[in-house]
C-alpha cells in the first residue's frame, strides 16, 4: 500500500508540476524514481518534522501541492501544532502520509504505534482523513487528492493487505462504499479492517447470519447520508477500527447517531483498541487478536450483541 501510495505521488508529479515530495529521514532509496525524474521537487529534510510541516505550508502558500511522508506517530503527535496552525488554520492543500497507522509497528513498541491518529486529526477543522483498505483503493483515491482544496491526512496500513476493493470502481473522497449486502446487521469499517470485517461476515453468512459491510475510506468528512440510512435499516451497527476507542472512527459514528440518528435507533457496537498503551510487541495480527479485532472475535461480538450469547 505504501509503495502504491508513493508510486501514485510519482504519477501525479508527472502530470502536474505543482506536486512536491517531502520526507523526513525515510528509508534508503525511498522515492528514488521520483528523485531521479524530478530532483528539484524531491526533498528529504531530516529528523525535523515540525519544520517539515511549516515548510510544506510555505510551499503550499506559493501554489505547490506538497506530499509529506513520515512515520504516522511522529507526524501526528509531534507536529500537532504545526498541522493545526500552519496547515488547517490556513486551509492549505498539503497531504500528510503517515506510515504505520494503528498497530503496524507492533514490534517497535508504543513510541511507534499510532492508535490515536484519527482522534488527533479529526479534532482539526478543515482536515480530511483517508484510510484506504488496500492498494487498489489507495491508487484510486490518490488521484482524487490532487485537486482536493484542503489538507489531507492519509493513513497507510501495513502493506500486502488483501485486496477487497474491486478494480475500476469509482472512489470519491467522503463517500462510503458497500462491500457486502446483508440484512441482520451492518459492519462499518475503515482502513485495513475492511478485509477482516468481510471475513467475519462470510463466516457468519455460513451460519445463516447475513451481515452487510460498509467501508468508509474517508474518516472525515463522514458519509453521513450513508450512515444515517444504515441506522434506519439495521437493528445493529458495528464499527471496527484499528484505533483507540476514544475519538476515532467509532466515536465519529456514535457522535453522528447521537446527534442525528433515528430514535429509537439501532444498537451501536464499537470494536476498537482499549484505552491503554500496548503492552506487547509481537505482530500487528497478534495485537489485533488480543484487542478482539480479528475476524473470529468480530463475528463472536456481533453474534453476542444480536443474541446475547
Amino acid at each position: 500500500m505504501r509503495k502504491t501510495c508513493l508510486n501514485s505521488i510519482f504519477e501525479l508529479a508527472k502530470k502536474d508540476d505543482r506536486v512536491l515530495f517531502l520526507g523526513s529521514d525515510l528509508g534508503s532509496k525511498t522515492g528514488d524514481d521520483f528523485l531521479k525524474a524530478f530532483p528539484e521537487r524531491f526533498f528529504m529534510e531530516g529528523i525535523a518534522e515540525q519544520n517539515l510541516i511549516g515548510m510544506a505550508a510555505g510551499l503550499a502558500m506559493e501554489g505547490y501541492i506538497p506530499y509529506v511522508n513520515t512515520i504516522a506517530s511522529f507526524l501526528t503527535r509531534r507536529c500537532l501544532e504545526q498541522i493545526t496552525v500552519d496547515l488547517c488554520l490556513h486551509d492549505l492543500p498539503v497531504r500528510l502520509i503517515g506510515n504505520g497507522g494503528g498497530l503496524v509497528y507492533a514490534p517497535l513498541g508504543p513510541t511507534h504505534l499510532a492508535p490515536d491518529d484519527f482522534a488527533l486529526m479529526r479534532a482539526l477543522p478543515n482536515m480530511t482523513i483517508l484510510a484506504p483498505s488496500d492498494a487498489v483503493q489507495m491508487r484510486a483515491i490518490m488521484k482524487q487528492t490532487l485537486e482536493w482544496p484542503h489538507p489531507i491526512y492519509i493513513r497507510l496500513a501495513k502493506g500486502g493487505d488483501p485486496v477487497v476493493f474491486p478494480k475500476k470502481t469509482k472512489v470519491e473522497i467522503g463517500k462510503a462504499f458497500s462491500l457486502r449486502e446483508g440484512r441482520h446487521a451492518m459492519i462499518i469499517t475503515t482502513g485495513a479492517m475492511a478485509h477482516r470485517a468481510l471475513e467475519a461476515a462470510e463466516t457468519m453468512g455460513k451460519k445463516g447470519l447475513d451481515c452487510a459491510v460498509l467501508h468508509l475510506h474517508t474518516v472525515k468528512p463522514l458519509d453521513e447520508a450513508a450512515l444515517l440510512e444504515a441506522a434506519s435499516s439495521f437493528p445493529l451497527l458495528v464499527t471496527i477500527e484499528e484505533h483507540s476507542r476514544i475519538g476515532g472512527f467509532g466515536s465519529a459514528v456514535a457522535e453522528l447517531l447521537a446527534d442525528r440518528g433515528p430514535y429509537p435507533g439501532p444498537r451501536l457496537l464499537r470494536l476498537a483498541l482499549p484505552d491503554t498503551f500496548a503492552n506487547h510487541y509481537g505482530s500487528q495480527d497478534e495485537q489485533l487478536e488480543v484487542a478482539g479485532l480479528q475476524p473470529r472475535s468480530i463475528a463472536k461480538a456481533v453474534i453476542k450483541s444480536l443474541f446475547g450469547a
Binding site: Q50, L52, G54, G58, L59, G63, E81
Partner: peptide, 25 residues
C-alpha cells in the same frame, strides 16, 4: 498578513518554504 502566527516558532519554517518556492519558480 502572510501567515497566522501567535503559536511561536512557526514563522521561519513557513518563510523557508516561501523562499524555497521563490527559488523553484
Amino acid at each position: 498578513v502572510e501567515a497566522s502566527t501567535g503559536a511561536l516558532g512557526h514563522g521561519l519554517s513557513i518563510g523557508v518554504g516561501q523562499a524555497l518556492a521563490a527559488k523553484l519558480q
